[in-house]
Amino acid sequence: MAPIPSGALWSPPSIAPMTAVPGPLPVPDADWAFETKWDGVRCVLTTTGDGSVRLTSRAGNDITVTYPELQGLGSELRGRGVVVDGEVVVLDASGRSDFGRLQSRMGVANARRAGRLALDCPAHLMIFDVMYIDGHLLLDAPYYERREALSGLRPAGAHWSAPSYVRGHGAQVWDAVVHAGLEGVVAKRLSSPYTPGTRSAHWRKTKRVETLDVVIGGWTQRRGAAAGVPGAVLVGVAGPDGLRYAGSVGSGMSEREQSELTAYFAVIARPTSPFADQVDVAGAHWVEPRLVAEVTASEWTRAGRLRHPVWERLRPDLTRLD
């Protein structure tokens, strides 16, 4: 890579983020780098050398006002025109990304409110790539060279950092991520270029999911279907006061399973909610809590709800229809 000059003002280009395809960890993995998959908001950050910063979302929207605490990176890189790729997160006390807290920051366009939220719920930018430095586009440079260039920028502050990656040893990285309760792993081919705006097989994401059994306590009507056909089920888990509501699950359910549930629900319908806590779901229908389902989810939210739940199957071995 050509020497990188400094000390001048530059006009960096607008670069859309490159994205990964879902899939298993690559094997063999000697030609791959492994990073933590952070649960946040994808962001491209641009500095022009005069200390100013522009933040752009994955959809191309300007989110600069939303995260004022990231403006300080412009001062740290003053004199450099830079475009970096990363994930905006909110960290908990253990250093894990907390998407539930981040949601309070998302979409805020009022500068005064964003400033208050930055004090109460500060964001952190995890930087994992650099695409442009001081007039030099790095898109064709291999991943490992771009990471060397990123390290040379030394981005380290209260609200931003460039976490390291591991060459090879994907299984060990996965075990560490699962043990730490993080969202997953992103594998990136060491030789891969940066292809803006594309979903590339050179980057592969593997998410950690939790499998659990839940009790069905209600359902909502499937839009456009005959009356009585569920589009989603309302599920719960055992709590100290009874069945605690854990969320709505609709993704992953086949038409055969919807038909099967329709027949069951007609038999075990009840007029009131079986959940111990309040369930504020429009159009909810209630059933006796006798059916058990297996679902997967990425995590529990701070409100005690399943995040990204997916239906797997009904558990007839645990179901009570008597």
Rank of each mutant, 00 (worst) to 15 (best):
T47R: 01
A141R: 11
P122S: 05
E299Q: 13
L314Q: 12
H124E: 04
P28N: 07
A187E: 09
Q103D: 04
F99W: 09
I127A: 12
E183R: 08
S94L: 11
E260M: 13
T319Q: 05
V287Y: 03
R167F: 07
R146L: 08
P316I: 10
A111G: 00
L306F: 14
G135H: 05
A232E: 08
A109P: 00
M106I: 15
A156H: 12
L137Y: 04
A180C: 00
I216P: 03
D39S: 05
E76K: 14
G135C: 06
P5T: 13
A149V: 05
G74S: 11
M18N: 07
D317R: 00
Y143N: 05
V53W: 07
G107K: 13
N61V: 11
P26R: 09
T56N: 06
A297P: 00
G283M: 04
Q71E: 14
T66E: 15
L73C: 10
H169I: 00
V90M: 04
E183P: 01
V178E: 14
V249C: 07
L318S: 09
A158R: 15
T66I: 09
A141L: 14
V186G: 01
E145N: 03
P193N: 04
A269K: 13
G236L: 01
G86K: 09
G79E: 10
L182W: 08
P17Q: 06
F265R: 09
G152C: 01
V209R: 15
Q258W: 02
W38N: 01
A33S: 12
I133M: 10
Y67R: 09
K207H: 06
E299W: 03
K207T: 13
T46W: 02
I268W: 01
V82M: 04
W174A: 14
R58H: 10
G217M: 04
D134S: 15
L77N: 09
G107T: 06
T220V: 15
